[in-house]
Design a protein around this nucleic acid. Sequence first.
DNA 1: CCGCTATCCC
DNA 2: GGGATAG
Length: 602
Amino acid sequence: MESGCSHYNDVDSEHARCIIHIDVDCFYAQVEMVRNPELRSVPLGVQQKNIVVTSNYEARKYGVQKCMLVTDALKVCPNLKLINGEDLHNYRTASNKIFAVLQCWKCPVEKLGMDENFIDVTNLVQEKMKSANISNVTLAGHAYSEPSIDCPCGCHTRLKVTSQIANEMRKKIYEDLSFTTCAGIAHNKLLAKLICPQNKPNDQTTIFPEHGTSFMSTLESVRSIPSIGSKTTEALISNNIVTVSDLQQASIDVLKKHFSSDMAVRLKELSLGEDNTPVKQTGKPQSIGLEDSFKIVSVRSEVEDKFTALLQRLMVLVREDGRIPVSLRVTLRKKDAKRLSSHRESRQSQISPSIFTLSSGALTITETGQQKLMSIIMRLFNKLIDLTKPFHLTLVGLAFTKFQERMTGRGSIVNYLMNDISVQSVLNLQNECDTSSSPMDYSAVSPSSSTTTDLSDAEVEPSPKKPKKVTWIAKRRCLSKEEVASPSKLKVGELRLNSKELEKVSELRLNSRDRSLTPRASPAKDNLSDTSDTMRDCEEQNCDDCPSYVDKEVFSALPDEMQKELKAMWKNPSSSEMPRSSPRTTNKAKPNTIMKYFVPHK
DNA sequence: CCGCTATCCC
DNA sequence: GGGATAG
């Protein structure tokens, strides 16, 4: 190191992180101007229903504000050019492009709505500071306030480097996509977001940690703090806490009287400009849903029609998403004289992935699959409505809320096997108490990930609503001829492998099936073979390294690497990786998940 | 203000 | 499962 090395870099400091918040200027209006550059020079408003949801800066000169009534906007700006913005498709596309550009920096990017993104560039800044001489790095854009004190942790330098990165990002968004943006640079999300609009449009602002608290106190209402909404504001105001400054000075004990302890602490921290929430990489949504509101629906058949229509639309979205849903939620809002606003009720249930099919890689659903889903939906509906009384609904909603975990492919051979096996087990779990001949009783089927929990819950602490004690029996199922012959049409429940992996597994299963079928003459039972064959086969397949429950032939067909990994695991089960969803246990009475799925219950 | 979609927290 | 929050 050289001369005045005052650039101490304390990565454990409270100011350790480097966060950028990027906000696209008047997003909808810019999308329209990019589409049609002639609009750039005229006052432009984007209209939804009867309101101007946003306007370009040309229109703002005349006083056209966000969410203004069209009539009022035209009064202040008779030349206002209006474009209908009710179709969000173009906006979504533009939003995704911006998100994609930001991903180029290989840092976590969190999307917030269509026009905002957080980026955590902490690691990138560290790298830059290691490789380049940053002793006299300059700030890009504005500072909220010039750094005065010399923060010993080195955050000033880091944030200056961050401001340079933010500048590069905005430059690339402009060069690639022609969108101007604002950015806020800070050591946390709260300050980055709040400082972002300080220099609008098309500019960026950095705030240094030492100014966090004083900046926050410039905010008039507690409501301007993200995560403090109308309800929390009400509660605070009723305690005479109106401004952020009030909140800064409020006693924590007073806050704890009206909020949970965690919430009280969090409110206080926010008021001081402190926020340790991480930037979470945005990925696929955790739920995909639709809802439909209306004046009144009081007839069951109409409800069914609404759900059928929703399901129809929802399937398009799920198909586009590509993942296989395993849980379904039904929501409704009852007509309520008291609370007209959103008081929703919902019920959800697991669904069998085998309802869906994969044909040549695309997720589809058969007619009978739709019928199965509808019967689940109506069963959930019945749980929500007392059918002996009249009902009055003002909204119904449908959402898929859980999805089959993606095969990460490489990395985990245990997952490779587990996913496959666990799904198989689920498909073949049967409730002993179930006397019906129906092959699928949805109320009884548990998802792979929660089978263990459900079982123990049922044994240890039966819920009063489900008093009957259940016993699960695992059976191995053979593939039908059609399924083997045409793997692309296999039930989705058995297919969570990519095509290469699929080929392998199909092959293994085919072998396994041939072997179990040829020696014995029991062709009558096809799909659901009984357990005895399997159990005996397992006993016959004993080998030195494999437990008795492992099919030797299947095992030996696995790649050497996989065999090794499995053997290692069997030698020392507790130290081996387990699937995320199944916490391992040291309790011998409670077998680990792998055992659970391999060992047939007696 | 309300409709809609999604997430997080209790 | 329900409420609060965001956009």
